[in-house]
C-alpha cells in the first residue's frame, strides 16, 4: 500500500529566497506526525505543496503514491484544516451546510449528523458559522474535513486563537481519529509539549529538514529539546509554549 506522504528533495523559493531546501521524508499509514519549526521555517509552504496549492517547486511530493503535481485525485483522500479559515463573518451558511460542502460524492445527511455528534456540534447544526466561537468553528471545520472519511488529515496550526477547554476537546478528537479510526495525521504546532503528547513522529524544519524520527527519540534528547526551545533550562519550561527557536543540525532517524 502506498505511503500517505512521500516528500523527496523538495525545494521551494519565493522571489529567489529559499523557503524549503532539499526536504525529504515519508509518513506511514496511521502515523501522527507533528511538524515543528520557528516562524518562517516553511511549515505552511510544505503543507501548501502537499495539498497541491503550491506547484512551483522542484522535487516530488507523492500523496498515496501519486505525484500531487500531476494528479489531483489524491486530494479526495485528504481532509484539511487550516490555521484560520478566511470567510465573511456574515456569510449566510449554517454549520450543517458547511459540513455538507465537504461531501464531494453527494450529501448523506446521516453521515453529516454522525460527524456532528462525534464532534459535539450537533446542537449547533442550524447556527450560522460566523456566530460561533473560534473553538466551535474549528470543530466544524474538522467535521467538514472528516465527513468524507479521509485517509489523511492535514492540520496547519489548528489551535491558534482557541481557548483551553476547546483545545483539550480538540486534542481528544484528533487522538480518537488517529487511534480508533486509523486516520494518518500531519499537523503543525508551536506547542512542543502538545506535539510530545500527541505525535508518534516529529519533523523539525527550518528551511531544511533538521530532524525526522520518532517523537520519543526527539523528546528524550534534552539537548535537542533545549536547542529547539528558547528557554535556557528546559526543566523550568513547563509547557514549551515559547516560540520554537533555531533548530539543531540535521538528524534524520527515519531514513
Amino acid at each position: 500500500m502506498p505511503r500517505p506522504i512521500e516528500v523527496s528533495n523538495l525545494s521551494v523559493g519565493y522571489a529567489g529566497v529559499p523557503a524549503l531546501e532539499n526536504v525529504s521524508f515519508a509518513v506511514d499509514q496511521g502515523e501522527f506526525l507533528g511538524i515543528i519549526g520557528p516562524n518562517g521555517a516553511g511549515k505552511s509552504t510544505l503543507f501548501a505543496c502537499m495539498l497541491g496549492l503550491n506547484t512551483q517547486y522542484t522535487g516530488t511530493v507523492r500523496i498515496f503514491g501519486q505525484d500531487i503535481h500531476r494528479s489531483r485525485s489524491p486530494l479526495r483522500k485528504i481532509g484539511y484544516v487550516p490555521q484560520m479559515v478566511h470567510f465573511e463573518r456574515n456569510f449566510p451558511i449554517t454549520v450543517r451546510e458547511v459540513i455538507r460542502l465537504g461531501m464531494w460524492h453527494g450529501v448523506q445527511e446521516e453521515r453529516v449528523d454522525e460527524v456532528m455528534r462525534e464532534l459535539w456540534i450537533h446542537e449547533l447544526a442550524d447556527r450560522r458559522i460566523g456566530e460561533l466561537s473560534g473553538g466551535q468553528q474549528q470543530r466544524v471545520f474538522i467535521a467538514k474535513a472528516i465527513v468524507n472519511d479521509p485517509q489523511l488529515l492535514i492540520l496547519d496550526e489548528p489551535v491558534t486563537g482557541i481557548d483551553q477547554p476547546s483545545m483539550n476537546l480538540f486534542y481528544g478528537i484528533l487522538k480518537d481519529l488517529n487511534s480508533n479510526h486509523g486516520i494518518t495525521i500531519a499537523w503543525s504546532s508551536h506547542d512542543l509539549d502538545t506535539i510530545n503528547m500527541m505525535s508518534s513522529h516529529v519533523v523539525c524544519l527550518n528551511r531544511t529538514l533538521h530532524f525526522h524520527g520518532a517523537a520519543k527519540a526527539f523528546f528524550s534528547d534534552e539537548k535537542l529539546v533545549q536547542i529547539m526551545c528558547k528557554c535556557t533550562d528546559p526543566s523550568e519550561c513547563t509547557d514549551h509554549k515559547c516560540d520554537v527557536a533555531e533548530p539543531p543540525p540535521i538528524r534524520n532517524e527515519a531514513s
Binding site: 484539511y80 487550516p82 478566511h86
Partner: peptide
C-alpha cells in the same frame, strides 16, 4: 458555493 465560501479549502477539495 464552496469557492465562494473559501477558495483555498475549495481548491484543496479538488
Amino acid at each position: 458555493l464552496y469557492s465562494t465560501f473559501d477558495e483555498k479549502q475549495a481548491k484543496v477539495s479538488g
